[in-house]
Structures are given as structure tokens and as C-alpha cells.
Amino acid sequence: MSELAFEYRMRSEFDREIFAHAFRLMLLPPDTGRQKVLGLDVDISPKSWVSRGRDGFGNGYVYGTATEGHRAFIAHVRGRVLTGSGEAESGAGQELYFIQTPATAPGPCAVRLYEGLGLPDGGDALTRAERFMAALRQALRYVPGVTDTTSSSETALRQRSGVCQDFTQALLTLCRMDGIPARYVAGMVTGEGQTHAWAEIWSGGRWYGLDPTWGRRVNGDYIKLCHGRDCRDCLLNRGVYSGPAVENQMITVSVKKV
């Protein structure tokens, strides 16, 4: 077990004043079989009304609106999380994660990859998923900036490159083609300056984390924030405002062992 201290800081600057800035931040790590939240502190400026909610997947979030005009918006979330207390997470509702979404729907590249593997039937879901993960390490290169949150796994497989989001969605595609429920996870990991994404695989009645970007099982270095069917279900921060401003957003994440 390890205790991790994390810090998520988002700063948006606008070149002119904006109003009625509504936001939703899915940055509240849940208590699961694998992690336990020891402390959490959320700071938002400028002054806003703030509330908390939970989405249909069970993910918690903070939301509110900064009504008054402002040119800078800062969200600062800090906390400490005990991780690695278990290997897997129990749960229910896994039938939802059998289904491909537009972001994971297999196209010719996914079909070629899946059929090319020629994985014989049998074996537990986790082992099969690990084979898919290994195959993806060959099929995809880590290249930032070539995809965005609306890109599909097929796009990434076709261009043979992407970021953690694309590695994860491609793994979901292959698992679901194989009949294995698999879901998208957004979170944080030690040693990276940004948020991260990985997959959870339903195997033997529990959810196991696999990180296809790094090609490994999820361990005590990972803090989970939320899960869903694909990247679009796990947008960590949403915002809309009034005003014809240009926004410049900076996000920094740090996760350190205590």
C-alpha cells in the first residue's frame, strides 16, 4: 500500500471579461476496493456557488457557476489517497460495458488486428485482455497532439498513433469484440504532469485495471477519478460561459508518494 498526495490545478485565462461561467469538475477520487481517500480539498476562484453531484456511472463531481465577470478561473483540487489496498474492484452493471460506442466501434483496422491475433477460445478475460494490450503496444505509438477527445479508436489504429486515451479506447474495442466487458478510466499516475487514462476489464466478477499505454497492470501508483463507456463519459472538466473571449487553459497535475 502507498499513500499518494495529488494536486490538480487548472487555470483558464480569458483575453476579455466573461460571465455566467458554468463548470463541472469530475475530480473527486472515489473510494473503491483499490483506493481510499484520506483527505480532499477543492478551491475554486472567482467566488461561485458550488454543489456536488453524481452521474449515472456513479462518478462524483463538483459543479457550479461563477456569475460575476472575470478574466481568470482557477480550480485547485488537492488530496491524499491510500492506494494499492487491493487488486480489483467489485461492481455491478457490467452489461453496459459489453457494448461498443461510436468512439470504440471497430472498423477495418480493429478487425484486422483482432483477427490477425487469432487468439484461441478460452482462458480468463484478464489474460485475454493482456494479450490485446501487448498487441496494441505494437500497433500504436505514443504521439501527442494527433487526436482529440472526439477521436475514435479506429482513427488512432489507422494512423498507428495516439495518446493514453487512444490506447485505452483501442483496448476497449478489442475486449468488447471479444465479448469482454471493459470500461474507460480517467485518473492520475505518479511521474506524469497530466491526467491519464486506462481500462478496467471485467474478469471473474471483478474489475481489473490495465494500462495499455505503459503496457502494465494498474498498481499503487494510480489514482482513479472516474469511469464510463469511453472518453466522452469521462470528460474531467467541462465549462461554458458567455463572452467572445479567447481562452488559454493550463492544467498541471502532480502525484507524489508521501
Partner: peptide, 18 residues
């Protein structure tokens, strides 16, 4: 509601679903 559904919606009401 762009906070819960399509984030690019400009005809909705932020937070109405909450």
C-alpha cells in the same frame, strides 16, 4: 445540458439536469 450531455450544446441550460 452541456454539463451532463453534449458539451458543445449552446441551446441548453447548464446544470438543469443536476
Amino acid at each position: 445540458d452541456p454539463m451532463s450531455f453534449l458539451p458543445e450544446s449552446v441551446i441548453g441550460v447548464p446544470h438543469i439536469f443536476d
